Amino acid sequence: MTGLLLLLLLALLVMAALFVAKVRGPALSLTAAALLFGGAGYALTGNPGLEGRPVASRPPLPSPLSLKGAREAFYGRFTWLDQWAILSESYAARGATQDAAGILRSGLREHPRSGALWSLYGNALADHAGTLTPAAELAYDKGIALAPDHPGPRFFKALALLRSGEAEAALPLLDELAENAPAGADWRPLVEGARSLAQASVDQPQAATGS
């Protein structure tokens, strides 16, 4: 709880500083959306009681939240998926992104009709390439086709688009997810945060050009 209060205080101080500096419009909206998105990720995965330790490497593709936290929000914890996902994430954390993708590819040989596993494979391929590649997009689309009623594959595809700088393409997917998200769903704050961030990214160039 203390960590959440400190995070809220920090967010308020940042917004106040920007307001005093007369930052307005899309820039202020983009900052607010980023803080919202980060706060949602922290609420799902943060543990301020853990001792600090240096991080060996960072994900090649920037992400505004923990992909592990998002995976757990959409697909749950302590499921059969963990045996593949946790091992893959451990390789990715060390910068071995090709091995991380290979683990999930092995999982797909055993579970070729798992929409969840295909979406995680898409994440791994995008992380390895540093952008959303045709192969990663194909993996996401396969996941969506296999699990058309599950929000996970569509969210991770939208997030990969957003992380790759394609906010305009991500926005329709996020709009649809936000519209159909149950009020109490664990993943709803992630969708709303990603949607706000995508909308602010789309609006900012338009405001700058006066269109």
Rank of each mutant, 00 (worst) to 15 (best):
G184P: 03
L197Q: 00
R71L: 04
L117Y: 01
Y42G: 08
P26M: 09
Y140S: 12
P64K: 04
P151Y: 05
F155Y: 06
V202Q: 01
L120M: 07
A136T: 12
K157G: 00
D149V: 05
G49K: 10
P26S: 12
F156V: 03
D127P: 04
L9E: 12
L50R: 10
L108R: 04
I144M: 02
A170Y: 04
R24V: 11
R94M: 07
L177P: 01
A181R: 00
L132P: 11
P59A: 03
W187E: 00
P205E: 01
L28R: 15
P151S: 10
A194R: 08
A135T: 11
D203P: 00
F155R: 00
F37V: 13
A21E: 13
E89V: 02
G76W: 10
S114D: 11
A183L: 12
S196A: 13
K22D: 15
R163L: 02
A27S: 11
L36N: 09
L36H: 10
S211P: 00
A56G: 13
A11W: 11
V14R: 11
L35D: 12
L197F: 01
M1Q: 13
G39N: 11
P48R: 04
R154S: 06
T2Q: 13
L117E: 01
L159T: 00
R195Y: 02
L7N: 14
A126T: 07
Q98N: 12
N47E: 15
L67R: 08
N180I: 07
F19P: 09
A56D: 13
G143E: 00
L10Y: 13
R71D: 06
F74H: 08
S63D: 14
P59G: 03
P64N: 08
L162R: 05
S106E: 12
R109F: 12
L162D: 01
L13P: 07
L104G: 05
T45P: 02
G130C: 04
L173W: 03
E72G: 06
H128L: 05
L28Y: 14
E72C: 06
A27P: 08
G165Q: 04
P189N: 06
G130F: 05
L6E: 11
R94F: 11
P59R: 09
M1V: 15
R154D: 08
S119G: 08
D186Y: 02
E137K: 03
P182T: 10
M15G: 10
R113N: 14
A11D: 13
S164E: 06
G25I: 04
N180S: 12
E176C: 05
A135F: 08
E166F: 01
T31C: 15
K68G: 03
L7P: 09
T133G: 06
L138E: 15
G95S: 10
L171D: 09
L174T: 04
A124T: 05
L138T: 14
L4P: 07
L81F: 15
A181S: 05
A158W: 05
A21N: 14
D149W: 03
G52L: 14
D99E: 13
G39T: 10
R154I: 03
L174G: 01
L4Y: 12
L7M: 15
E176L: 09
D82T: 03
L125Y: 02
E192A: 08
